[in-house]
Design a binder for these strands. Structure first.
Lengths: 332, 332
DNA sequence: CGTGTTCGTGAAACCGGTTTCATGATGGTC
DNA sequence: GACCATCATGAAACCGGTTTCACGAACACG
C-alpha cells in the first residue's frame, strides 16, 4: 500500500500537491498533474480512507436505520438507495431496530457513533420529537413518514390519496356499501388512508357507516378478524378496502373459510402491492407506492443536505392503483 | 467532542493511559482506572472512530455483498447478520451487485476500498476462482453457496438433502410418478436439489424418467412452462417437485389454468418457503432453510476469521419440510 | 521599473487515536 | 543489602491523509 508521501517522492512533489491532484483541484500545473497522475497509476495508489476521514472529519458514508429489515419492501428500497449512494461514492451502513423505540434509538446512536455523514431513517417507533431533535444535529432524511416539524426532511407517500384511490375505484364499479379495515389509527399512515376513504365516500354523497370501519393493526390476523366481524353484521357490505395487503390477505382467508366468492360477492382492495398480492388467487387489487422513486429522492435529498443545502419540503409521492382480480361490480 | 488528550489532562494521566483504560487493558492501577473512568463519564468522551481506525488499521466493520437485495430472503438474513455484528460492535456496510459479475466485483472492490475488516458474500455471479482468490487476501465468508476450494469459508445449505426430503415426502404419500422442475443445472444449488430427487427415487427402486426432469431457470414463468410441458406428455405424473417456490407458483398457475385440482390430481412441493408460500391457495408445501441460523453462523465465522482463527469447514445446514396443502396421496 | 496580484508549490501543523520503549517504583529472592 | 522481575505510567513516534500559511515566480499595471 503506497502512501501519499511515496507518491510525492517519486513524482518529485510534496504530499500537498498529490492531495490536490487527488481531489481534482484546479490550482495545479497541468504538467505537474500529469506527472503525479502517472505515478499514482504506476503505483496503484489509493488514499487510505481512515486517514482521509480523520483529516476531513467525513466518513463518506451514511447510515440507514430500519425498523423491520425483514419487511416486505425493504429490499426494493435498499436496492435503490444503495445504488444511488454508491454512485456518489458514499457507503451505506445499516442498522435495524426491530420496531422498538429503545432499539431504534440504539441503532441511531450506533450509526452516529460511527460518525456517519447523515442518516436515512425508516422507523415507526421513534417519536416525532426525537426525529426533529435528530434533524437539528445531523443531516437526516425520514423515509415513508411525515413529521410536520421537519417536513423538509421527509420523503413520504400520499396515503390519503391512496385510501381515496382505492375507495374511488370501488365506487366507480358501483359499490355503495364499502367497509374499511384500517391499521392502528394512532399510526399516521393508517389514519391518512382512512381519511382518503372518508373523502371518497363524502364526495359521492354517501354517508359513512362508522360500524363499517374496523380498526386492526396491519397484521393478517387482524384482517381476518375484522372481516369476520363485518360478516357477522346485519348490514351486508359489497366491498372492503383493507389497510394493507397483509390485512387483505387475512380478509381473503376469512372469506374463503365461509365460501364467500370474491370478487362476485365481495370486492377487496389491499395496500402496498407486496410480492404476494400478485400470486394470491384471485390476484389482489391493491395500491402501489413508487418506492424506487422515493428511495432515489431520499438518497438525493440526503446527499444535498450533507452538502449543506437547504431544501423545500418534498412533495408527497403519489400511489397508483394496481387492478387485478379482487374487484368487480357488486352482485357481479 | 472531547479528545483523549483532554480526558488525560483532566485525569492527570497521559493519553496512553486513557487509551489503556478504554480498551479495558489489565495493566492499569485500579485507582487510576477509576479516576479516568470518572472523567470519561463526566465529559461524555467517546473515541473518534476515524482516529482509532487509522491507528489500528481496523474499520471495525464488515461488508456484505448481495446480488439481489430485492430477493425474498435477504431481509431475514440481513436482520440476523446485523444484530449479531452489532453485538460485537462491528458495523455492516452493504453493497449490491444485481446479479451481474461485473457489478458484483465492483461491489467487492468498493467495500474493500473502504477497508472492511472482512466480507460476507452472497453472490451468484462471482466465480469460484474469484472467491477463492478473495479468501486468500481478506477474511471472507461465502453465504449460501459451497465453494470447494475454500470450504472453510462457506456457510451453506444441504440442497441435496432438501431435494431428497421433498421427493421422499411425495414417495411416502404413495406417489410413484414424480416429475422434477429444476432450476438452471449449471447452478450448484439446482443441481444438488436434483441429485436429492434422484437419490430418493433410487432408494425406492424407482427408475427415474429423464423426460420428467425439466430444466428451468428458477423463474415463475419457467415453472409454468415446465408444468405445461409435463401436462402435454402422454405419461401422466401425480406429483411434481419444483426447484424453488417461484417455479412452484408458476406450476400452480399452469394447473389452475387447466382446472387441474391440487393436490387431488397433482401434488406439488416448492423450495425456499418464501412469504408467499403460506398465502397462496392451496398453501404451498415447501422446503424451509434455517436462514437465521445460517446468518448467525456466518457472522460468527467471519468475526472469528477476522481474529485470525482457522476453522474447520462448517457442516451444511439442514433444510426441513414444511407441510401445507399441496401434497396428498395420489388420486386422493 | 516598482508595486500589487495571481499562481503553483512546499513545509509543517493538524486530525485523534494506538503503540513502543524507557523509566521509576515496588516487591521478592538469596 | 544487592539484584532482578514486575508493574504502572508517560513521552513520543506513528498511522496517512488535509489544510493553512508562506514564499518565490510570473505577470499586470501605472
Amino acid at each position: 500500500m503506497p502512501t501519499i508521501r511515496e507518491v510525492a517522492a517519486r513524482a518529485g512533489v510534496s504530499p500537498a500537491t498529490v492531495s490536490r491532484v487527488m481531489k481534482g483541484e484546479v490550482r495545479v500545473n497541468a504538467e505537474t498533474r500529469a506527472r503525479v497522475e502517472a505515478v499514482i497509476k504506476a503505483l496503484g495508489y489509493a488514499p487510505n480512507v481512515f486517514a482521509r476521514s480523520l483529516a476531513s472529519n467525513r466518513l463518506n458514508g451514511v447510515g440507514l436505520v430500519i425498523s423491520h429489515l425483514g419487511g416486505p419492501f425493504m429490499g426494493r428500497v435498499m436496492m435503490t438507495l444503495e445504488a444511488a449512494l454508491r454512485r456518489a461514492n458514499v457507503s451505506l451502513l445499516v442498522a435495524s431496530g426491530g420496531g422498538e423505540a429503545g432499539r431504534e434509538q440504539e441503532a441511531v446512536d450506533f450509526l452516529l457513533g460511527r460518525r456517519c455523514d447523515g442518516l436515512i431513517v425508516h422507523a415507526d417507533a421513534l417519536s416525532n420529537a426525537t426525529l426533529a431533535g435528530l434533524a437539528a444535529t445531523t443531516p437526516l432524511v425520514v423515509f415513508n413518514r411525515r413529521v410536520p416539524e421537519i417536513a423538509e426532511h421527509c420523503i413520504h407517500l400520499d396515503n390519503e390519496c391512496g385510501g381515496y384511490l382505492a375507495t374511488r375505484h370501488l365506487l366507480e364499479q358501483g359499490h355503495r356499501r364499502i367497509a374499511c379495515l384500517t391499521g392502528p389509527l394512532k399510526q399516521q399512515d393508517a389514519a391518512e388512508r382512512l381519511a382518503g376513504y372518508r373523502r371518497a365516500l363524502r364526495e359521492e354523497g354517501i354517508e359513512t357507516d362508522e360500524h363499517a370501519i374496523i380498526e386492526g393493526d396491519f397484521t393478517e390476523r387482524s384482517g381476518e378478524q375484522g372481516m369476520a366481524t363485518l360478516l357477522a353484521r346485519e348490514a351486508a357490505v359489497t366491498a372492503v378496502v383493507a389497510g394493507n395487503d397483509d390485512m387483505a390477505l387475512g380478509a381473503m382467508a376469512a372469506l374463503r373459510a365461509r365460501r364467500i366468492s370474491m370478487p362476485q360477492t365481495i370486492s377487496l382492495i389491499g395496500y402496498d402491492d407486496e410480492a404476494c398480492a400478485r400470486h394470491v388467487v384471485p390476484a389482489l387489487t391493491t395500491v402501489h407506492a413508487p418506492l424506487e422513486e422515493m428511495a432515489q429522492a431520499a438518497a438525493e435529498r440526503l446527499l444535498a443536505l450533507i452538502e449543506g443545502a437547504t431544501l423545500p419540503p418534498s412533495t408527497p409521492f403519489m400511489p397508483t392503483l394496481i387492478e387485478r382480480e379482487t374487484v368487480a361490480a357488486p352482485g357481479g
